[in-house]
Simulated assay, not measured.
Amino acid sequence: MAHNPAAQTAYGPMVQAAIEQYEPPERRLVDDDLALSMLSTRQRAFVRATQWTPLRRLMIAATERAVSGSWALITCRKRFIDDKLAEALPNIDAVVILGAGMDTRGIRLAHRSDVPVFEVDLPVSIDRKRAAVQRAVGGVPSSVRLLPLDFERDDLVDALMDNCWSTDARTFVIWEGVTQYLTEDAVRATLVAVEGMPAGSRLLFTYVRADFIDGSNMYDAAVLYKRFRQRRQVWKYGLNPDDVGAFVGQYGWRVVEQASPDYYVQNYIRPAGRNLPASDLEWSAYCTKVTPNPL
């Protein structure tokens, strides 16, 4: 488990989020004042070097040469999730973050709200997260619970209930950068697990496009296909944007909005005065629970 390949990918998005903090506020695509502190000593040293604007520009350009649109894919999806959570916060009772990795969202939320946050991830990731949070803010806030769980084998609802989550709680479920690492059976099992959440609950998840998984469309990301589909074979599942509504509808969820690359360009990139493409490889789907089914 310590060498789980999916667990090893938790740091990359946080490196990008941390580098983005050196952009002036009006140009910044995502705000995350804790991102740097979650990284290893070597990673922090690397990120701090990007305070120098020319080096930061070179770093972003190199990322874009490898996978066009990838910088916006990570930073803008984080911004989209942060925005939707902030909008929903007055009307929710709990937050569940599936595959939380090293993301700081739950810790940042604890600084302004006492809404309970349940961060769920592989045991190795939870151990690393606990140590990083200890280093960053002196310990896990009382409103945040870190839950070790294997999505392929363990029962999500039992784990949540064992940690004082209420089945009556209107819950905002965040599932960022995870579904592609799971089998279809595991994705469906997770949707079954959250199917019984009460009306008014929210689900925001990201997904890689199915035609990339089957190799019929590279989306200018051949390097990722070689890395995640051919060499390591850790990306297993994808969806098509037109199919998402019917897919989540089977479990009582309704799509409210999908964040496409055009959404990111129009709402985040252009207003920030940035000249960046946004990859069509991954989309984000924001859903609300309309059919409460008893757990």
Rank of each mutant, 00 (worst) to 15 (best):
I19E: 14
D280R: 00
R105D: 01
A62T: 10
R65G: 10
C164P: 07
W253T: 13
E87W: 13
V120R: 04
V265Y: 14
T183R: 07
T63A: 14
Y225T: 08
D150P: 13
D214E: 12
E176Y: 00
T190H: 11
D93L: 03
R270N: 06
Y219W: 12
E64G: 11
V256C: 14
V124P: 02
P54R: 13
W283P: 05
Y268T: 03
P90A: 04
R42G: 12
R128H: 12
S260C: 05
V120W: 03
I97P: 07
V178K: 10
A100D: 15
D31S: 00
Q258E: 14
Y22I: 08
E195C: 12
R254Q: 15
A66F: 14
D214M: 10
L85N: 05
A49P: 04
W71I: 05
V192R: 11
L109C: 00
D158A: 04
D33W: 00
S40L: 11
V30D: 11
W253N: 11
V290F: 12
F118L: 05
D82H: 04
A72Q: 03
V255F: 09
P116T: 05
A189S: 11
N217K: 13
G177N: 09
L85S: 05
L224M: 09
N275V: 12
E152Q: 00
L281Y: 04
N91S: 09
T41M: 04
F151N: 10
S142R: 06
R105G: 00
I213M: 12
L276R: 11
S279V: 01
V178C: 08
G99Y: 07
R27I: 05
E257T: 15
I174H: 02
A193M: 10
R44W: 06
F205Q: 07
E176H: 02
L122N: 11
P294I: 05
Q266K: 15
N91D: 04
D242P: 08
R128L: 14
V248Q: 13
P116S: 01
V256D: 15
A49Q: 10
L295W: 12
A110Y: 02
A132R: 00
G238Y: 01
W175V: 06
Q21R: 03
W165E: 01
T206F: 01
G238Q: 02
A189C: 07
A45K: 12
I81F: 01
S201E: 07
D262H: 11
R42H: 08
I81Q: 01
P25L: 08
A285H: 13
I174N: 05
R65I: 14
R44P: 05
F46N: 08
D242N: 12
R209F: 02
W52F: 15
T75P: 06
A7I: 09
N275W: 13
L39S: 10
G138R: 15
R77E: 08
R254E: 15
S143A: 00
A193F: 12
Q43G: 15
L276P: 08
P271R: 09
C164Q: 15
T75A: 01
Q16T: 08
V67H: 01
V96E: 07
F205E: 11
Q233S: 13
M161W: 07
L204Q: 09
G200M: 04
C164D: 15
A272V: 00
T288S: 13
N4Y: 08
G245Q: 13
L295C: 13
A136Q: 09
W175C: 06
W283Y: 15
L149M: 04
